[in-house]
């Protein structure tokens, strides 16, 4: 009886389900913040675990399984966003002011929700770096490895994200 990772790698869906149960909460939280939308987050979570299942035979345990899974989730979310961005660019911008997030909310649903809103308003790359560094606690070298951006870019994006958040939250 080996561990769930080993058994899932050999193609056992029961073992993979055990891994899913153990990690879905953190992957969903990350996807929800990356996507800023619960429906989209569910899709990203599903795609993340499908891709993890496909790539699992190549997982050699150099990193923790959770980190490996995060890396897949970040890639799924960022590539999805690139695809969506391309589609939207073809269609053209929607000139509907109602569709834009409200700037400066009068109602105060609490610090946490303000923070979630402010994060959702960040540009995608800055958002991903902020989430991975300040929320999840990864180092720039790890973020560079997970997202495929340069370490220096990770630092620049974090600097930018923090100042955008400070501005949004101090309004």
């Amino acid at each position: 009886m080996s561990d769930p990772i080993e058994r899932a790698r050999e193609g056992d869906p029961d073992a993979f389900r055990v891994l899913y149960e153990g990690h879905v909460g953190r992957i969903y939280a990350l996807c929800l913040r990356l996507a800023g939308d619960p429906g989209k987050a569910e899709e990203l979570v599903q795609d993340t675990f499908i891709r993890a299942w496909e790539k699992l035979p190549g997982f050699r345990g150099e990193s923790a399984f959770g980190t490996w899974l995060f890396r897949i989730a970040v890639n799924v979310a960022l590539s999805e966003r690139r695809a969506t961005g391309r589609r939207e660019a073809r269609i053209g911008p929607v000139a509907d002011p109602e569709a834009l997030p409200a700037a400066g909310r009068s109602a105060d649903p609490g610090v946490r929700l303000d923070m979630e809103d402010a994060i959702a308003g960040l540009p995608p790359k800055a958002r991903a770096v902020f989430l991975l560094y300040d929320v999840e606690g990864y180092q720039h070298a790890e973020i560079a490895e997970m997202t495929g951006i340069a370490e220096g870019t990770s630092k620049t994006q974090l600097f930018r994200a923090r100042r955008l958040l400070r501005e949004a939250l101090s309004r």
Binding site: V24, G25, A29, V111, D114
Partner: peptide, 19 residues
């Protein structure tokens, strides 16, 4: 900002079972 980031829940149960 940094304190608020640290205080965010790192795990959120999805509203429905995705399995």
């Amino acid at each position: 900002v940094l304190s608020a980031a640290t205080a965010l829940p790192r795990s959120i149960v999805p509203p429905r079972d995705l399995w």
